[in-house]
Amino acid sequence: MKIVELHNKAMELADEADFQIRMGNLKKAKKLYAKAYVFEKKAYTIAAYKHVDEFSEAVLIKSAAFLAFDAELFDESEKMAKLALSKILPKDMVIEVKKLLNNIHTTRSFERRNRLIDNKILVHLAGRIEHQNKARKGDIEDRVNVLTKFTAREAGRKKNAPYRQFGQPSKDIKEICAYNHSIERGTSHAVIVRLSKIEAACSAPDNQA
């Protein structure tokens, strides 16, 4: 098959997958996206081997990266996105690919959250932090402080402690709420709030943030 035929086949499959999404068949759509990705990657591989032209290669690889993301093949998508960034791309397309990388890391963070044990809450910090790829001290601390305050409130409520209008939480509640901070990737900021001794003090709050 020629490059153009492979690429067109990939786009047709992506069309079909989009249609399946609209019909609510997500599993079928995922499979079709995966198939489309294989064709698009093949088109790129041949284009790169034949040195067609760098811009076409870049567009193909970017397209493959998005298809892999739609198919939830995050490792493949990351590989392709990084390859795309190594090519000459217009600035707005570079931004698109960087956002894709960000989405991959975010999705992974949320996947990990589901694997966390009960006394840990993983909070992904989105917004300005994500786009600038750096976080100011306050950006993290302010959010974590709000979260730990809510956690302490929830712990107090579950412990049937009297409602506190002002001041610090009691020492035993303060002790069980501690956080440690992790940055998992350069473009993804996450904070883990660990509730130590939670089982001993009271039942754990929902693992949601």
Partner: peptide, 11 residues
């Protein structure tokens, strides 16, 4: 007219 994939549909 050619197409390529982007985040929300096609370019």
């Amino acid at each position: 007219v050619q197409r390529s994939r982007k985040k929300t549909g096609f370019d």
